[in-house]
Amino acid sequence: MLLSSVAEHVYWMARYVERAENTARIILVNNNLLLDMPRSIELGWEPLVAITGNAELFREHYDEASERNVIRFLVSDVRNSNCIINSLAQARENLRTTRAILPRAVWETLNDLYAYASDNKTSGMSRRGRYAFMRRIIDYSQLLAGKLSSTMSHDQTYDFLRMGRNMERADMTTRVIDVRGSNLLPSITEELRPFDDIQWKSVLDSLAGYQMYRRHVHVRVRGREVLRFLLQDTRFPRAVHYCLAEVESCLRCLDSSESPLRALGMAQRVLSRVGVDEIVGDGLTDFLNEFQLVHSELNSQITASYFEVGEEQAELQAASA
C-alpha cells in the first residue's frame, strides 16, 4: 500500500534532486563555454536564468545579469525557490517525511549533500571553487540515484521516484534546447561560424550527452542531429523520448492511470509528430511551447490521479459538516 502523500513526497524529492543536479551542470558547462569563446562575443550568463524559467523573478531583484548575480541567483538566493540550495532543502524536507520508507542510506546521503551545499555555497560561487562545488552536487545526486536503484525494491514507491526524475529531465532538456538552441539555429553569422560546433557541444554537455552523441550519431556535432538526438533518441536517458517512455512504463504498472496515460500520449504525439527539419528555425520555439503545455498537463494529471485521492470527498464532508 502506498499513501498518496508518500507518493507525492517521493515524486517531488526526485524532481528537486534532479533540478539541483541539472542546475549545477548548466553552470559548469557555461563556465567552460565562456572560457572557449572569443572575448568579442558576449554570451554571458543570462541564458542560464532563462533556462531555469525564472527570468522575471531575476529582473525583479537584480539590475544586470552579471556572472556574480546569476551564479548567486542560481546557487543560493533564497528568493529563488529553484536555486540549488532551495532545491536540495526541499528534496530533504520531502525525504524527511518518508524516511521510514526509503532506505536509511539514502537519507544519509541527501543529508550530507545538503550539509555540504549549505556549508560551501560561498566557495561554490567563487570562480575558483565553482568546479569542485558543482561537481560534488552532480556526483552526490548520482550517488543518490545509485543507492536508490540498488538498495530499494523497485516497487510502486520507486516508480514515483522514476516518474519524478524523468518528468524533471524531460522538462530540463526542452528548456536547454529552447534557450541554447533557438538563438543558435537561425542565422549564424560568419563571425560565429567557427564556434558553432562548440556551442552545440555545450548544449550536449549541459545534458551530459556529448559522449553518447558521438558514439551513436556518427556525424560531427551539428544542430539538426543534436536536436534529433536530444528529442527523439530512444536510448539516451536525458532524451525527451526516453524520459517519456520511462514515465509510461511507470504508469502502466499503476492503477487508475487512464488520464495520466492520456496526457502522456498527447506529449508523445507532439514529440513524434515534429519533423526536425521543419523546426529548425522559427518552428522550434512553437514546438517547445506546445511541449511545455502538454508536459505540465501530464504533471497535473499525475497529481490529480495519485496525490489528490479522496480530496474531493474530504472537501464534500467538510462542506456538509
Binding site: M1, L2, L3, S4, S5, A7, A100, Q156, F160, L254, D255, S256, Y306, V309, G310, E311, Q313, A314, Q317
Partner: peptide, 30 residues
C-alpha cells in the same frame, strides 16, 4: 510504524466518508 510494518499517516492522509468509516488515501484509491 516501520517496526510494526504499518502505515505512518498524518491527518491529511485520512478521510471519513458518509458511511462513517475511515479511509486512507493511497495511490490505488481509498
Amino acid at each position: 510504524a516501520q517496526q510494526m510494518g504499518v502505515e505512518l499517516a498524518t491527518g491529511r492522509d485520512l478521510v471519513v466518508l458518509e458511511d462513517d468509516c475511515v479511509y486512507l488515501r493511497t495511490v490505488g484509491g481509498l
